[in-house]
């Protein structure tokens, strides 16, 4: 079976499980909604400064809700010790990482798709003029967020303290991309070209690449007993 066919078989299984339980998507989206509502009340009727406050709050909501979902990366494998079953299968084990990364990316993007319009409504931030740039930034950053999250969720999955361990490991590594995302989102929301922040774009691109390659190469080592 080809590598990408293996990835598809693994991903299809995970999507089917998520479609039935909706566990990850619902919990992430609910937290994102809760944060946006809380921010909305905190700032009351005052319009946010799109160049500073709005970008920061958007990425805070994405970060907190995202970690909740990333923590469930290997949740379906824990039940019934299915990760060991996958390790027994005659497949390239890095395909498991790639499938989990695509799953996390899909779920995070779906959560963000729900979050953006709610954010615009509750915080009275007009997103429409900056929408194409914003979608691009969110997509690029989420690729890296999903990659580093999948990698660290795998590392922490063997620990009994995994729920506490993942945020501790993830947030420090997520900071560079979080800062870059906030800066680029600020530029987009004040109507400037994101190319004015090309250094931040390069940082996100390199970050995505590094963690995708690292996850693919190291997954086998991380899951070995």
């Amino acid at each position: 079976m080809s590598y990408w066919r293996t990835v598809w078989v693994l991903l299809r299984k995970d999507l089917r499980i998520e479609a039935r339980s909706r566990e990850t998507f619902v919990s992430m989206s609910f937290l994102a909604l809760l944060l946006v509502v809380a921010f909305g009340f905190a700032f009351d009727a005052r319009p946010l400064d799109p160049g500073t406050e709005a970008a920061g709050l958007l990425w805070i909501a994405i970060s907190f809700a995202g970690v909740l979902g990333l923590g469930r990366t290997l949740g379906s494998e824990r039940d019934g010790d299915c990760l060991r079953a996958l390790l027994l299968a005659p497949i390239d084990r890095s395909a498991i990482f790639v499938a989990k990364w695509i799953l996390n990316l899909t779920l995070l993007l779906a959560m963000e798709l729900c979050l953006l319009p709610l954010f615009s409504v509750f915080l009275r931030v007009p997103l429409r003029p900056a929408l194409p740039e914003l979608v691009g930034i969110v997509f690029l950053s989420t690729m890296g967020f999903a990659a580093v999250g999948t990698l660290l969720a795998t590392i922490s999955s063997g620990s009994r303290l995994r729920e506490a361990l993942l945020p501790l490991l993830l947030y420090p590594l997520w900071v560079p991309i979080l800062v870059a995302s906030v800066k680029l989102t600020s530029l987009a929301l004040i109507g400037r070209s994101v190319l004015d922040g090309s250094d931040w774009l390069v940082l996100i691109g390199v970050y995505d690449l590094v963690f995708l390659v690292a996850g693919t190469l190291l997954f086998d080592l991380m899951v070995e007993e």
């Binding site: 079976m1 293996t6 078989v9 693994l10 299984k13 089917r16 499980i17 039935r20 339980s21 379906s76 039940d79 019934g80 010790d81 299915c82 060991r84 079953a85 996958l86 299968a89 005659p90 497949i91």
Partner: peptide, 25 residues
């Protein structure tokens, strides 16, 4: 065949076996 079931509780019996069959080609 281990102590653990190696099966996904949210998949049907047939889907569990079909998934394994695909992984093993």
């Amino acid at each position: 065949l281990s102590h653990a079931s190696f099966s996904y509780s949210n998949l049907t019996v047939r889907e569990n076996l079909r998934f394994t069959a695909e992984l093993y080609g």
